[in-house]
Design a protein around this nucleic acid. Structure first.
Lengths: 341, 341
DNA sequence: CTGAAAGCGCTTACAG
DNA sequence: CTGAAAGCGCTTACAG
């Protein structure tokens, strides 16, 4: 954007005494360049302050240098972490990243995606829950030959590149922590039914509960939608259905905070009277009082890795199928206390 | 990105029986086209499903069709609202918007901006606080002839396009509301010292307090940094310095929530024992319990408008100097109660 | 491993 | 109000 006229590929070629094609090869990491020519191209480019013109690359190469993140805007904090991670991977390669809200399950949702893709040039797409588990969208992308990578998909059996954590194992780990503290009456608040990761978390919870308390009638499970409000409402139902609940495990931090707020209103002390835990380690978990015990997943790193993998597959111009698992940890803060018997 | 070969400007020209230049004019809103030709171009384009190729426009026109938002990442919610507003204005015109974190006042901050601008093609820049009040950056942009628009700048005297609210008047309004409720001992928590809007809010508060309680020694003012934690800490200081404070006015919602959390911990009831108000109407204000009374500013609309104005000035290729003020309102929720005498 | 030519799909002066 | 020509700075086959 700066107004000074920039050196072009021809200037570099002239100075390095090679053809522009060779310069192009060097800047595209083409394997077939002799070391000596490569060096002279590189130093000529450096002396001139040359950098490739994106618009020209786009036009000639039929690439856009844009990565789009399709998401479902529930949580600005999550979206922003993803954005940061993607940008880390993209900036140096001259790629842009744009975040696009695509309301899953809304009227004409798939149409909106198609229309977007028809009207914008993007080289690849990053998909997060629940968008990443929309079979119709995935089929559409596959058929159209569009390249994408998924973050935290539930449908892991499906081919294609993805990064994820083991939600089920993570939830199991958290549940074991709670049980280790002496809790037996634990309620679980789920996310939206179409959110795969939330379901996996529920399964992890249920399985550990089943194993630990085989004889019981099964734990109390409430339906939420990942919003603070739904956590607030779920808390009220929990108190109504079973006042002896000593711990609440919410499938995300927002709902955990909603429950915490409801407890505040009802003068129920956390963690003295009630333990509450969440999932995600969102910013909210840190800024609330008491700070929330939760499951921490490395969102940013996952996003960065997803972008790197996607960029690889773009430059190879072929879908890849790398699946990478990331580790989680239970972040113990102040919303849990042991049950004294 | 879809693989089918798209119709080009020549196809449209052929079908409409005009030159490609005329087609170009139509798609660039050029004034000098007869209505009849314009209509035939439009219908030919529609029949063919033509849409302009951005990469070609970029290359030929030396434009990038990218707007960058330079921000200082404190609040994902704020950034995301800005992003939404910008996108609303940009999407239909084929513009992309990218959000770039530029840590104001950090080591090499200006260098980072310059480097970014040198390595990326952007047609215009949107600036939000505190970045929009960085004189050095503004001077640099002006000298380089880069086009930008500012949202909520403090330095309004400076030329150039901006959208804003009257922070001082808004804070005055909120202060009057508190005084109307019977509060006299009101503490104020400021944002970072380099944040112009925060200073304006403080001035509005001070002025009303001065007018209302001329004889007093002046209200208690604490320094915060817009973080929840600083609101938490400020609350403790407030209690220490003056336990009779009956209301806290924080310069943003995050700090108000921090104070609320500290009150929660100390068993001080809000609003029965203490009223707390914030500023911004961020998402946090709605999801917290009790919901926070705050000042609502139309961030999204402001961002959209800023983008429209910037886009205008880009297409005219000349800096504009439109300054637009937006209205605010005190959003009364549940963290305030009247003082009974 | 290397290069000359053609072309990507537009816009920008320039001329009428 | 309209058009023919040149050119933006690259990459893609193709040939050697």
């Amino acid at each position: 954007m700066l107004k000074t006229k920039l050196p072009t590929i021809s200037d570099v070629a002239l100075r390095a005494d090679v053809s522009i094609k060779t310069v192009s090869r060097v800047f595209n990491q083409s394997p077939n360049v002799s070391d000596s020519k490569k060096q002279s191209v590189l130093s000529a480019a450096k002396e001139l302050g040359y950098r490739p013109n994106h618009a020209a690359r786009r036009l000639a190469g039929n690439k856009s240098f844009v990565l789009a993140h399709f998401h479902d805007n529930l949580n600005a904090d999550y979206v922003s972490k993803i954005y940061d991670g993607l940008q880390t991977a993209c900036t140096d390669l001259g790629y842009y990243v744009v975040a696009e809200k695509m309301l899953a399950n809304s009227e004409g949702y798939l149409d909106a995606c198609e229309r977007y893709l028809n009207n914008h040039d993007v080289d690849g797409i990053i998909l997060t829950p629940p968008v990443c588990d929309d079979i119709k969208l995935l089929n559409f992308l596959d058929e159209a030959g569009l390249l994408y990578a998924r973050i935290s998909p539930y449908q892991r059996a499906r081919e294609g590149t993805s990064v994820f954590i083991d939600d089920q194992a993570a939830a199991a780990q958290m549940t074991e922590y709670l049980i280790g503290l002496g809790h037996e009456q634990i309620a679980f608040i789920t996310g939206p039914a179409n959110h795969g990761a939330s379901m996996a978390r529920l399964h992890g919870f249920e399985q550990v509960m089943r194993d630990a308390f085989a004889s019981s009638s099964g734990p109390l499970i409430l339906q939420g939608d990942f919003s603070t409000k739904s956590g607030f409402v779920a808390f009220e139902e929990i108190r109504k259905k079973n006042p002896n609940i000593s711990a609440i495990f919410a499938a995300n931090d927002e709902m955990a905070v909603g429950s915490l707020m409801a407890a505040y209103r009802d003068n129920i002390r956390v963690p003295e009277d009630l333990s509450i835990v969440g999932f995600d380690n969102s910013r909210l978990a840190e800024i609330i009082w008491p700070p929330l015990t939760t499951v921490k997943q490395p969102i940013q790193e996952m996003a960065e890795r997803a972008a790197v993998l996607l960029l690889d597959s773009i430059s190879a111009n072929t879908p890849s199928a790398v699946q990478e698992k990331f580790d989680v940890e239970v972040t113990k803060r102040m919303t849990c206390s042991p049950i004294l018997k």
